[in-house]
Nucleic acid binder design. Structure first.
Lengths: 196, 196
DNA sequence: AACATTCACAGACCGTCAGTCGGTTTGTCA
DNA sequence: TGACAAACCGACTGACGGTCTGTGAATGTT
């Protein structure tokens, strides 16, 4: 519908998500007040609470956008892989690159587990990264490279590994050296995990 | 000194840490108000702020205690290990057991990174779990089982893996089955990582 | 055209919470 | 016993998340 009211509402909502994404990324969830989002966006209190029932809902709106972007990048990185090892490697390296982005680091890695709780955080991953990883591992299992029984746990392990290495690199004093070191270690790790 | 005032102060402080530990574990850091700690402990506002400059300081006091307990358990679990693989295995399994404890799960795994920040969180681990793991990996490196260059990153990976598996088990619908599955996967994982 | 309805938006207001501050009590020591 | 310090008390403050009572513009109805 080219309804003018609806259009206006969607624009306001999108604007709020945009401003909130920036502020959450810069200051972290706790240190970002609703007041700050209001001031920065020029939207009124009532309007914000009309679109989002609360601060966590706003965060959820933000993280949906972030997760969507991550999903696109991962899809692009893995679509051409010829085998499971290559797919996993491409995916992990893509993730490591993504986490250099302060937005993704602060929102998706540091704040998300505390704000959403581990359960909902993993459910989010389930549709994104974790799904990709499990798919690649399943592929590897069918090729006889890992035990079928371990696919589920290994998928979690690979995801956690990726987060961790991404954070290491993001926080390192010398990011370039850390990136090289991290990529090398990730490669070696995956080779060993999948039995090269 | 058998000074009565000092004694009283230490008792109050210890009592606050005890109560705060329980509440933080039950409700999480954010959802636990200072007021609740006050009410539950019977200590006055001024007294609490006399012992702790702020809520994060109280959390820090709590997590020091938790980290101490974790350190003791890990030390006990690994002191008799004859080789690096056995040491790592013992350590990881001990961790997985620890993280079934809601106190450790909520405080040390879920809240700590967001409250302390990733940096200080890792510094804490550095003196505890991460140090243990790095030690075992160093040992493995000297035995030629892993590349010396990868010890640092691998230590982080193993720690992250441990946290993740612990959380998986803690959150599973069938904890007993998840524990068996997790232990099996961790064993397989370590065998592969260290080249059995 | 006149009226009713819906929906985005506005902002005064409220309860809660972390943190502050001046003052009091309790114990120590010269 | 009087000076001093450390522990403790609780009223108060300011900021913040969230609520509530509207208002006005666009849309639907007769």
């Amino acid at each position: 519908m080219a309804n003018k009211n609806v259009e206006r509402g969607q624009a306001t909502r999108a604007h709020l998500v945009e401003v909130a994404t920036r502020l959450f990324a810069e200051r972290g969830y706790d240190a970002t007040s609703i007041e700050a989002v209001l001031a920065e966006s020029g939207v009124s209190r009532g309007s914000l609470y009309h679109h989002f029932p609360g601060k966590d809902a706003l965060f959820w709106g933000v993280i949906e956008g972030v997760a969507g972007r991550v999903g696109q990048v991962l899809y692009a990185a893995t679509r051409d892989a010829q085998d499971p090892v290559a797919a996993l490697r491409a995916e992990c390296l893509a993730w490591v690159g993504l986490a250099s982005d302060p937005v993704i680091r602060q929102i998706a890695i540091i704040d998300a587990p505390a704000v959403l709780g581990w359960q909902r955080w993993r459910e989010l991953d389930e549709q994104g990264s974790l799904g990709f990883i499990r798919g690649a591992l399943q592929w590897a299992a069918e090729a006889g490279r890992v035990d079928q029984r371990h696919v589920g746990v290994f998928a979690h392990i690979v995801l956690a590994m990726t987060y961790e290495v991404a954070l290491m690199i993001a926080r390192a004093d010398d990011p370039a050296a850390a990136l090289a070191e991290g990529e090398s270690a990730v490669g070696e790790f995956l080779d060993r995990l999948l039995g090269s």
